[in-house]
Write a protein that binds this DNA or RNA. Sequence first.
DNA 1: CATCGTAAGCACAGATGTTTGCTTTGCAGC
DNA 2: GCTGCAAAGCAAACATCTGTGCTTACGATG
Lengths: 203, 203
Amino acid sequence: MTSKQPTTRIRRSPEQVRAAVHQAVIDLLCDPQGEDLNIPAIAQRAGVNHTSVYRRWGNLDALLADTATTRLERDSPLNDTGTLRGDLLAWAEASVASMRTPEGRALVRAVMLSMPNSTQAKADRAQHFQRRMHSIEQIRRRATARGENPPPLEQILDQLIAPFYIRSIFGIDPPATGYPELLVDRLLGNGNGHRSGGASTAT
Amino acid sequence: MTSKQPTTRIRRSPEQVRAAVHQAVIDLLCDPQGEDLNIPAIAQRAGVNHTSVYRRWGNLDALLADTATTRLERDSPLNDTGTLRGDLLAWAEASVASMRTPEGRALVRAVMLSMPNSTQAKADRAQHFQRRMHSIEQIRRRATARGENPPPLEQILDQLIAPFYIRSIFGIDPPATGYPELLVDRLLGNGNGHRSGGASTAT
DNA sequence: CATCGTAAGCACAGATGTTTGCTTTGCAGC
DNA sequence: GCTGCAAAGCAAACATCTGTGCTTACGATG
């Protein structure tokens, strides 16, 4: 009688498992002192069986991508301020605030790590990029609808988004004050390449 | 008699092994269709025993970092053009050219991948950053010695280096023509935040 | 020419990651 | 209530990665 007690076998709902695993990814990405990320460790931290993780996500890249997109979409409310500059500033301020938290930096790292390995080519990365740029595209669309003339996406990528990523990668803290304004002013205020629409460039 | 033929055991010199392993890292980073990078695969591709790789580099991160820094330093000759703008432009042009080759993109990915995992904190990443910024610092030093007033490193990071990285990450091709000039002009020509030497802020 | 140190190669063992077959749970539809 | 489905849990096999002791080749030094 090795006393198999079938009653002790409890399980959580799929949503609970999903949330717990996502949280475990973030935690391990924030905390680890030299440990590297892998599925058994994530599953243990989340308190779920590792086979559940393997069956649901298949591999680490997919799990990282899912975690990153889920959290990033949840955390970017995308409020309408009425002007292009206001929207960009709000976006940049939210990004800077996020960058100052371990969790925010972990999410950027998750985006990075999820990308390079298994994706067969540009297709996956481009799709990933589209998802990540969704809020920016919405800001641009709204500006166009208002009659403003927003910079092209590529320029926003180069001047607004790229600095956030590079700093997260290398662990360079943003300037203590005025950094969102600085980047948005550079983006909208410079005269070469693109001229932004009219009145919103007043200081 | 399983015919141990001691004569067949040939070996290459340490330098040959190092070069072969570096090349294998680049190859696997360029080519793989969904395969993920690991030491046994690298060793096999390089034609060396995997134990040699483990003993020399210890782990994948260190190998990636070594490969990236070695190749990047080898491929950035750093010629002196006589002006800050010329030096930055040369640097940017070399970077764009490198970004257009699979090997160049692989090196950027190697830098990314080598960073996040085991490094215990900011210390390692900061050091890595210093090495990567070495050529830029030299350009700034030369400009200062000439009496020019180069932008601070952070601004060069945000406006010149960050775009290259972000595009490599997401696989976004740079504009076909004029991209280096565009970035350098934005960097040196804008009037807010930092004023570069002289009257270059004219529109 | 002999000797010695360094580093690569080999075989094998241990640890870890990944996958599979099956059982059990919770929930929805009848 | 009963039944069936989807998904989580469990255990064990399977594959792969990582590390160790030892042998062997190459080059430097005397």
